[in-house]
Design a protein around this nucleic acid. Structure first.
Lengths: 363, 363
DNA sequence: AGCACCCGTGTGATCGCTAACATCGGCCAC
DNA sequence: GTGGCCGATGTTAGCGATCACACGGGTGCT
């Protein structure tokens, strides 16, 4: 025996000699393979595979026997082997940008929850820089990781271009992305949300509505600004230039300091809840009472918004639904292929004391 | 020819006849495989593998030739094949509980960022229910997904038990878990943070410090309560029973309503920033001024805390460092094996106007 | 009766890669 | 000079699953 010492065959290792059956319990070191199950059930590996994958052409008797063997041996299909043989990994890749903020982070969690519900795994690559290169790199990271489909949380204008420039070969859905273009997009209707907020403020008869906007390289921020602008125009109200923040409470605070000194600014639509928080603080410090002197509306309905001082009227986005929709679109494309889908979810206005006299005692 | 029609061999498909070299560009449909690279570089697949994996025993000439081929063919190792052959997937599994809250969500993102930095992928399974069964299921989901190691964000007392009861066969680190026990744990020193907060409040000479605690089935909440209690005892201050919330601003609001009616409550340590926000609102509604009448300290230093009304003194946890440490511990265990490691990170107190007269204009 | 066809099952090849040898040439030490 | 070791490379055999096809037997139809 001078030839190479082959690695012992699995079946031999596990089941002992060819004459003795596999042990009844999974007492050996390695997890059971499909071959072990086949041996144990007295069928071929292919039949086990059929049972596992729910193929119809298996007799009830065989199926139950195989299932029993699977149960007994605590068999779990090896996903790596599966992915190699079939090319499918039951894994969705998610490229997430801006996860430092409430919206994108919630979207990520929403996608994960939805994917889990549909039996998919989620492999995440977050991107912390704005430049196109790192987005591209993250996408490559994931596509090489053999994901079945890709979700891109692409709130930046630049992010989306990175995907379209890459022929990924797998279905892609852009979440919170640009609705134009040839890719599938799932997003909340930002402009509608902004319109709801703006009209709500206009109804209070406090003159035109000012706007503290998000960074204008974010699509949501643009959509909100655009919706606000259109609502004002439709009402014949004056459109003052918005003050651009960067989503942080700090930037909202700074914008608030500016607007606090504008006597006409008696109604403000803020691009998100964090900036609204900052604005509230600035207004308070300048002695401008909310809602008496200034009415304020935010965006997102973050969990804390209901306990701002005063509780914040804001536009709610349903991130769970967003994630669910994104996953649904991906799975549809996975199954049926077909063209790009566009899904737009409707946000809702949540009215609280920052725009109502109400039971709010803040003076 | 009546035998089965074998699938055409890759090399044949791609490279044409044995005499013609592979095409120079990756113009074929499939991505290049290691065999393609080997063929193109005039070496064996094993040598390509060596180059890709940084094995030392490769001559410089060969290495550069292989690298050139890799570059030309845009070769990427197939991770599924790799995982199957080697048993390693370069993927970390993260089981995350409580991702609805700032702390756990930030921890998750911190781990992802650190893993990415070390060249690992992250596969996430979030758990939304408290019961042990679903934690166990999530762990199983991931271990069957052939992850190399597992991080468990286990803020609940019950969560940790679920891992220890499962022989996972891979290194495990528990993040924000119980330091006792035989598993590796990485956590922020909650008791220390609580002590810092409590001592800071005691220094203000407002009598003893009240506590709005997190849910007591969360370890962090317990640690904070314990640190608070010990600090009070050490100072000889009276220990009133803490009011337990559930981390939400709502629960903080409710607790605040209670404490607002306790004249002695002039210093409050709150278990997290969200609850502190709610408490602030309640105190404000009851006409109790912060910090004049009541001083308040939170925990987490969420990005918004600096813009609460008034800005919140709080205890900062470095979630990026937490994730980084967790990943480091996992990689160490992967490489060197060895026993459980315990890492405790120090939080820091961030003093703002909710405990200082300072420049705060809140009347 | 004859034949096509479907059902249930098995066989062989293959996915792309790595582990464990085997091999071969050169260099060093005794 | 020769044995031995090392460095560079190739060879073979898997990893654990799926896929395409083969095959035997029952059924329906002509």
């Amino acid at each position: 025996m001078t030839g190479p010492q082959p690695r012992a065959r699995r079946a031999t290792r596990r089941a002992g000699s060819a004459n003795s059956p596999a042990p009844l319990t999974g007492s050996t070191d390695r997890p059971a393979s499909i071959a072990d199950v086949a041996l144990f059930a007295g069928v071929s590996p292919q039949t086990v595979s059929r049972v596992v994958n729910g193929h119809p052409s298996v007799s009830d008797l065989t199926r139950s026997r195989v299932l029993a063997a699977i149960d007994k041996l605590a068999y779990r299909p090896n996903p790596a082997a599966r992915a190699l043989a079939s090319g499918k990994s039951r894994t969705l890749g998610v490229v997430a940008l801006g996860t430092g903020f409430y919206g994108p982070a919630s979207t990520l969690l929403g996608i994960e929850a939805a994917a889990q519900k549909h039996g998919y795994f989620v492999s995440v690559a977050t991107v912390h820089s704005t430049d196109r290169g790192s987005v591209r790199k993250a996408i490559e990271r994931l596509t090489h990781q053999s994901v079945d489909a890709l979700a891109l949380i692409a709130p930046y204008t630049s992010a989306q271009e990175a995907v379209s420039s890459l022929a990924t070969g797998v279905p892609v859905v852009v979440v919170e992305g640009d609705t134009r273009g040839d890719m599938s997009v799932v997003a909340v209707d930002q402009a509608l949300g902004a319109r709801l907020a703006t009209e709500h403020l206009l109804e209070m008869d406090r003159g035109t509505v000012f706007h503290i906007a998000g960074p204008q390289n974010w699509l949501d921020a643009r959509g909100r600004a655009e919706g606000w602008r259109r609502a004002l125009r439709a009402a014949g109200a004056r459109v003052n230039p918005p003050i651009a923040g960067d989503w942080t409470a700090r930037s909202g605070y700074e914008a608030g300091q500016v607007l606090a000194q504008v006597p006409d600014a008696r109604a403000i639509f803020v691009g998100n809840d964090s900036m609204a928080l900052g604005a509230l603080l600035a207004l308070h410090e300048h002695g401008r009472r909310v809602p008496d002197d200034v009415a304020l509306v935010g965006f997102d309905d973050s969990p804390d918004a209901a306990y701002f001082c005063p509780p914040l009227t804001t536009v709610r986005q349903d991130f769970a639904a967003l994630g669910e929709t994104a996953v649904r679109v991906l799975l549809e494309q996975l199954r049926q292929g077909g063209g790009a889908r566009h899904e737009l979810l409707g946000p809702t206005l949540v009215v609280r004391q920052s725009t109502t006299a109400g039971p709010w005692a803040g003076d």
